[in-house]
């Protein structure tokens, strides 16, 4: 085992330049992949935090009787995801509006009658706001209740934002896959160059009784070390960039309470592990090709 490590690191030292270039390229790829992951993770959280704040406003038709209103309320409470509600009469709503816009009193005094509907303001369970599809389905069911005129919950912009995040996620995954592929190719190429430079030595090793695994193991370790070092460097650079940006932000993104977080240990370990795996795979491809010849 010690001998194996010794052989591996001797090989790497001898090809110092090639190894450094490989590790740097892997690091760059991992930096891009993990930057995308970081962005997606935070966009998801931002979206989730907005969803948690979602209130559904149920506008009632005009002229419902007290009993009809109670019937609507009962049916709303039976819907999954509805945890509670508050009745806001049209008079209270108008009053509230006036208080919120003190400079515009003239606007309201000109009104002959109150244009606002009576409203139920529904509180939602987190499960009901977890995905956009669930929210839309719930809103559809609410709108179908007799006596309900309209439903509002900011679906437009929330849906648009979710779409943008999903698109970015897709792009990110595609880019990530592409960059991981690049890492495979880079490591495979490094191993191939090394194999080529060593072909005579490898032939001699075979002739004196070395097994394939004795010959191949240092290459596998080399590929995995390149993956690991490149992965760690990439994530470390991202962390420094994150600290720099968040430091500049102070407390959260302006206008929100949201502070972007860094990748969790599980997430960045996953990325580094992926990088190691990809290094191994690149090596595997080159060696498979070697055995065939």
């Amino acid at each position: 085992m010690a001998l194996l490590m010794q052989r591996t690191f001797r090989d790497m030292r001898e090809n110092r330049f090639l190894n450094l270039v490989t590790i740097a390229t892997v690091a760059l790829s991992i930096l891009i992949v993990s930057a995308f992951s970081l962005f997606v993770v935070n966009a998801n959280e931002l979206l989730a935090s907005w969803r948690r704040g979602v209130r559904m406003l149920v506008y009632l038709e005009r002229g419902l009787s007290r009993n009809q209103e109670l019937a609507v309320k009962r049916r709303l409470l039976k819907l999954p995801g509805v945890t509670g509600m508050q009745y806001v009469s049209r008079e209270a709503a108008l009053q509230q509006l006036k208080e919120e816009m003190p400079g515009q009193v003239a606007l309201f005094t000109g009104l002959k009658e109150n244009p606002l509907p009576d409203t139920f303001e529904i509180r939602l369970a987190p499960a009901a706001t977890g995905s956009h599809a669930v929210l839309v389905a719930l809103a559809d069911r609410v709108a179908g209740i007799q006596g309900v005129d309209d439903v509002a919950y900011g679906q437009e912009w929330l849906g648009k934002f979710a779409n943008v995040v999903n698109l970015l996620k897709l792009c990110g995954s595609a880019m990530g896959g592409l960059f991981m592929l690049a890492v495979v190719v880079i490591v495979a190429n490094t191993v191939r160059l090394t194999l080529y430079a060593r072909r005579e030595e490898i032939e001699i090793m075979r002739l004196v009784g070395a097994t394939d695994s004795f010959i191949h193991l240092p290459f596998y370790i080399q590929g995995m070390v390149q993956g690991a070092l490149g992965g760690i460097a990439g994530v470390a650079i991202l962390y420094l960039a994150y600290l720099y940006i968040v430091g500049g932000l102070g407390h959260g993104i302006p206008g929100t309470l949201f502070t972007p977080r860094f990748l969790s240990p599980v997430e960045y370990s996953g990325i580094i592990f992926g990088s190691v795996l990809v290094g191994w795979f690149g090596c595997y491809l080159s060696l498979k090709q070697l055995v065939r010849h």
Binding site: E203, I204, R206, L207, V208, G209, D212, F214
Partner: peptide
């Protein structure tokens, strides 16, 4: 490889 360990080979070109 295991078979070859029973042999000592001296090659024409040293190797």
């Amino acid at each position: 490889p295991y078979f070859r360990r029973n042999l000592g080979i001296i090659f024409q070109d040293y190797k």
